[in-house]
Amino acid sequence: MNHLDKLESQSIYILREAYREFKSLCMLWSIGKDSTVLLWLARKAFLGHVPLPLVHIDTHYKIPAMIAYRDKIALEWKLNMVYGENKQALDAKNTFPDGKIDRLSCCKLLKSEALKHTLAGDWPRYRLDHGQGHYVLDTYTEPYTGVIVGARADEEGSRSKERYFSPRDKQSDWDVGDQPPELWNQYKTDFAPGTHIRIHPLLDWTELNIWEYIERENIPIIDLYFDKGEGKRYRSLGCYPCTFPVESSSKNVQEIIEELRSGKFANIAERSGRAQDKEDGGGLETLRREGYM
């Protein structure tokens, strides 16, 4: 078995472990390459099925192609697709694009807050009705106690300390100093009432592994990652006011892999196109402790 087989098997094991142990389980799907690989791995783990809801936090500032792609795949693969949003902040135009707050505060409101309440079930969730082809108010309002996330350890300093099964308290807070031990494929699957667990099946994958796997499995990834002749492509996806394409002429998966292995991105951080990370020293860590993915 090669190292992609190993990563794949480990992720499948973790997904199955989560499915076995958590009654109210969901998977976050950001439409980006990592969580799309995660979705593919779920189909591997569950032999072609995806027996759990996919949750997307819609900030309503996502690059429009992302939403189109989300719904196309959801209908095609018959996914149990759910989205949530921060309606209050959006209605009050309390956002960075509206000029009222800075980038980090905007992330906090439109993503972290929306996510927290969508997971808890105390804000409305919208579910894709496959019969009607559009979203309807979800009647399932129980909190999700297990949340599968596509975080990778190599993304950024704070993520390198995550566990595969990582507990969060009632406020979705992450206690970095006191994390559970993990050994011999045994994870924290027991949790006290009111707390929930974040599950990270992709923790050991690198950005390069992700692309190698997309190539091997021929996963239909969103085409924003590819240069369409303008010498630009996205390396990381997010909201359009804060995410910028990088200069690159990689037109397909093969060229991206080449670029990552030897080319100019070999030593530049993946999230360098994300403006919110740069606002203070520990931008992503601060966001993460408060529930950001």
């Binding site: 300093g157 704070s158 390198s160 300390k161 970095v176 050991d204 690198t206 020293g281 520990g282 860590e285």
Partner: peptide, 28 residues
């Protein structure tokens, strides 16, 4: 010491992963 917490105490609290390559392998 990517985490603020750790820098202030001057000791490693948790396992952190770093990555590098030799000609032969990718090391974690």
């Amino acid at each position: 010491d990517a985490l603020k917490d750790e820098q202030s105490q001057g000791i490693t609290i948790d396992t952190a992963r770093s990555f590098f390559n030799t000609e032969k392998r990718h090391y974690i």
